[in-house]
C-alpha cells in the first residue's frame, strides 16, 4: 500500500549537461531554469513528503522561487526558457496552494501514497467499502431534515425559535467535533512524519477515516451556517 516515491530521478541539465535531481526548478550547477519536473509538490520546495511543515519557511521559499521564476526575468531568454518560466510558476503556485492548507496537504500526501480519496474514486473501486462512519450517518441525516424544515419555514416567513435554537446547538456540537477531528489529524501527522513504515501505514489508514468523517462534518457545518445565516 505504501508507494515509494522516487523523486531523485537524475536528469541532465539542458544547458550544462550536469545531472541533477529531477525535482529542482533551477540547475544547481549552472542555475539555469529547468522544465517543470514531473515530481511531487514537496520536492518542488526541496522537501521530502511530510505533514508537519514550517509554514513561514514554506511561504518564504515560495516567494523566493516566484521571484526567480518571474516571466520578466526571462524576457530576453530563449523561447523554451520563457515557456518554462510560465509552466514552473504554475506548478509552484499549485504546489504552494496545496501544501500550505493543512487538509489539502494531508489529502495530497495520502494520495501520493496510494490512498483513494476524492470524487474520482467510486465506491466500487474502493478497496475498503466499510469506510462510511455509520455512527455519524443517522445524526447527519436528522440534522439535514431539520435544516430542510428550517429553510421551508423561512420561505413562509415563520421560523420556529425552538428549531432555530436546536440548530444553533447542533452547530456548536459539530464545530466541536470538527475541532476534535483536526486535533486527531495533527496527532497522526506526527506519527506519520516520525514513524517507521508500519506506523506510517497505520497512520495513513487512520487519517483516511478521519478525513471521511471530516467531510461530513464540514458539509454539515457549512449547511447549518448558511441556513442560520450566522
Amino acid at each position: 500500500m505504501l508507494k515509494v516515491i522516487d523523486s531523485a530521478v537524475p536528469v541532465a541539465c539542458w544547458s550544462c549537461s550536469v545531472a541533477h535531481n529531477d525535482a529542482t526548478l533551477f540547475c544547481p550547477h549552472c542555475s539555469k531554469i529547468q522544465p517543470p519536473p514531473g515530481s511531487d509538490f514537496f520536492s518542488v520546495f526541496g522537501l521530502t513528503p511530510r505533514l508537519n511543515l514550517d509554514l513561514p519557511e514554506l511561504e518564504h521559499e515560495f516567494h523566493r522561487l516566484s521571484r526567480r521564476l518571474h516571466p520578466d526575468r526571462f524576457a530576453r531568454a530563449g523561447e523554451n526558457e520563457k515557456q518554462w518560466s510560465l509552466a514552473d510558476t504554475a506548478l509552484l503556485n499549485d504546489a504552494y496552494r496545496t501544501l500550505k492548507e493543512p487538509i489539502h496537504r494531508t489529502e495530497y500526501l495520502l494520495k501520493l501514497h496510494g490512498a483513494e480519496i476524492g470524487e474520482e474514486h467510486s465506491g466500487k473501486d474502493r478497496k475498503d467499502p466499510s469506510r462510511v462512519p455509520a455512527d455519524l450517518l443517522e445524526e447527519v441525516f436528522e440534522l439535514n431534515m431539520q435544516l430542510e424544515e428550517m429553510r421551508l419555514e423561512r420561505t413562509t416567513g415563520e421560523a420556529d425559535p425552538v428549531l432555530q435554537a436546536s440548530l444553533e446547538q447542533a452547530k456548536r456540537k459539530f464545530d466541536g467535533l470538527l475541532d476534535e477531528v483536526d486535533h486527531d489529524l495533527r496527532a497522526q501527522w506526527q506519527a506519520w512524519d516520525e514513524g517507521d513504515i508500519a506506523v506510517r501505514q497505520s497512520a495513513q489508514k487512520t487519517m483516511v477515516a478521519l478525513l471521511d468523517r471530516r467531510r461530513y462534518l464540514s458539509n454539515l457545518v457549512r449547511d447549518v451556517t448558511e441556513t442560520l445565516g450566522v
Binding site: 470524487e119 467510486s122 462512519p133 450517518l137 467531510r215
Partner: peptide, 13 residues
C-alpha cells in the same frame, strides 16, 4: 437503508 458517500459527504435514505 441509510447510506453515505465519504467522497462527498452525501447521505441517502
Amino acid at each position: 437503508g441509510l447510506v453515505g458517500a465519504p467522497e462527498c459527504g452525501d447521505v441517502m435514505r
